[in-house]
Design a protein around this nucleic acid. Structure first.
Lengths: 204, 204
DNA sequence: ATTTTTGTTAACCAAATGGTTAAACCGCAT
DNA sequence: ATGCGGTTTAACCATTTGGTTAACAAAAAT
């Protein structure tokens, strides 16, 4: 808990604290007191800046999820060649996840708990435009550069291999006894490994 | 909430109710009252059979996770040929997950929250014996049937592609608008799809 | 038949938790 | 210095929640 400084915006400190606590413990597990402590302030002050826990949570969730989604869209909708695009997606996803290892569990968790309308309100129009990716794959199949493949399955595979290790980290660490440092090293290697794995599989 | 029947063991009904509620809401989100309601009994009776929420949770967790882990070990440690083994792992994993779609999120969630000792107490010796799998892969590499590959990365890939879709289901459903039925259909297809995807990638 | 044990409940309790209030603090324009 | 606005706090409140108690019902044992 850092001593307060009049020049650092309290609101900002609260948001950072809330982000940390929510990401670590989730909505249900997070305590307003935890957030207040983390921000080095009184609990009442929390409600002075953010009326309720739900409000605060929604801000954090919106901010976090919006950082996550649109980034990938750019790559998917760009006009890179397919293999290059796959390489970029893997590199981008995994790089971001190394920096934000708690993000996937947090997002998946809350998306599962909240109802469908919540997501609609949150992401509205800007959902990933897969049609672009689908079209590109079908073109490559017709050209004969890759095997015929169900695009949704392929996309699921890429997502899975990039994201899952960060979700299963504790389990995997328990089984294989890799340290945190070694884990990051493994993930660094995955940036190229997953892309190559995918390309090797679909290339004709 | 089902009407109680004197011939059905109350304890069993509680365990089933607890399993359902814990899997859906997690430890932090679950309420003892919810479990009591689901079991169609009084909250006090819950504490008559299971002293505390932690006790009850630990039983459910132990039971659930132990159903999950040893099953795969059998396949991994069997002396099937590698490709056949991969096919079996995918089929087995995905079949089980279609039947227990909430399991992965529940397990991953709680494994992340609990400390390391908890896992040790829970799984103790019976962690998956990857050394067997590793040796088999190295043998195949030497034989020249598959490309050189980091065994841990390969195992992670298989696990990822089998498990992740069940974690990301709501997100994926939001993006692609597939119904629950269609989702199960996609997963059915994945049983063979993932295995082929992996084998195509590593085969020389 | 009656005592004892087991199963079940309504009512209650203490702690935790999200949220509120009223007073105090602080920089600053008057 | 004084008053005023926004900021911060300690103390408090209402509800939720895990857990307990004491009484009651239903078998089982005597």
């Amino acid at each position: 808990m850092v001593k307060k400084q009049k020049d650092a915006g309290t609101q900002q400190r609260i948001l950072e604290a809330a982000r940390k606590v929510f990401l670590e413990k989730g909505m249900a597990g997070a305590r307003m007191q935890d957030i207040a402590d983390e921000a080095g302030i009184n609990k009442a002050l929390l409600h002075y800046y953010f009326t309720s826990k739900d409000m605060l949570f929604e801000q954090i969730f919106a901010n976090t999820s919006q950082t996550f989604v649109p980034h990938i869209n750019e790559i998917i909708e760009s006009d890179m060649p397919l293999f290059e695009k796959i390489e970029h997606i893997c590199d981008d996803y995994i790089s971001m996840l190394i920096k934000n290892p708690y993000m996937p569990l947090f997002l998946i968790n809350e998306i599962n708990k909240q109802d469908g309308d919540f997501l609609k309100r949150m992401w509205g129009k800007q959902k990933a435009n897969l049609s672009f990716f689908v079209a590109q794959i079908q073109k490559e199949v017709k050209k004969g550069t890759i095997k015929p493949i169900h695009p949704a399955q392929l996309y699921m595979n890429i997502m899975s291999m990039c994201v899952f290790p960060f979700l299963g980290k504790p389990m995997m660490q328990f089984m294989t006894k890799v340290t945190d440092k070694e884990f990051v090293q493994l993930m660094e290697e995955r940036k190229t490994f997953v892309a190559r794995f995918v390309i090797d599989s679909i290339r004709k």
